[in-house]
Nucleic acid binder design. Sequence first.
DNA 1: TGCATACTTGCACTATAATACAATTATTTA
DNA 2: TAAATAATTGTATTATAGTGCAAGTATGCA
Lengths: 133, 133
Amino acid sequence: MQIVTIQAEVIFQALADETRLRIIRLMKVTDEESCLCELVDSLLEPPYKLSRHLKILRQAGLLLSQKEGRWVYHRLVTEPAYLEPLYATVQALPDTNEIYNNDLKRFRQRLCLREGGRCRIGIQSEMFKTEAG
Amino acid sequence: MQIVTIQAEVIFQALADETRLRIIRLMKVTDEESCLCELVDSLLEPPYKLSRHLKILRQAGLLLSQKEGRWVYHRLVTEPAYLEPLYATVQALPDTNEIYNNDLKRFRQRLCLREGGRCRIGIQSEMFKTEAG
DNA sequence: TGCATACTTGCACTATAATACAATTATTTA
DNA sequence: TAAATAATTGTATTATAGTGCAAGTATGCA
């Protein structure tokens, strides 16, 4: 086990971006883990963009990423304990334009395409764009 | 009364800086308000630098600034409610290098120089630099 | 009314950050 | 072993952010 002390500024910086807040909120609300292509289909953002944002969250100590074959699953890190009120804050943020809610709807749909609880397909964005705003 | 919706990214961005975290933590821990020169003496940073950081915090909706003669007093904003866990997080951050603690010691000393609960003097940094690390 | 002073800001400079495209890596499968 | 594919990254570009100096504003006081 490796404990790295992460500067508070780095954590707040990691949360100071709309795309990254969308990722954190989705992971927090669903208590799920997700691979890149599922996030692409949920947030409707290009893979290279999300991949870079995921890296920033990982480096800030907020996400843990594990490779499984061709897929990489990302999930929230819950330690140290002071991360919890931060996630709670993100989860409590107003969602005036329903951005978070639409991400969530698409993500839930996308989860239905898993087989045996794992993603077996790639990006399906075209399909998801036409549905659920 | 004017309610302005502030983007979450702006709030997290405002917290993504060491100097600003020092200001927030000091205001939160002491539950005090402070003018610029008191902060200069507490954080030992130049006035123009702190003035700019205070502006950023104000624009993010975290500080309220009120002018009183030549002095401007700054204090934490507590609304909306989701700011509270953020401040709590800042207050709970580890203080490995005692930076926050040293700020606090100097601030408490500086408060002793108030007359009638108000600051009546300007920057005294030279005096504060020589004491309490 | 002129000076001291608490604070702010214009400007220049440097560093960091977000994005898009294209290329690359790593893994699976035919 | 070659093609397909999930994911990452090099590079260029543009925008934003932090800092320091010097100048400016606004208030109080002699």
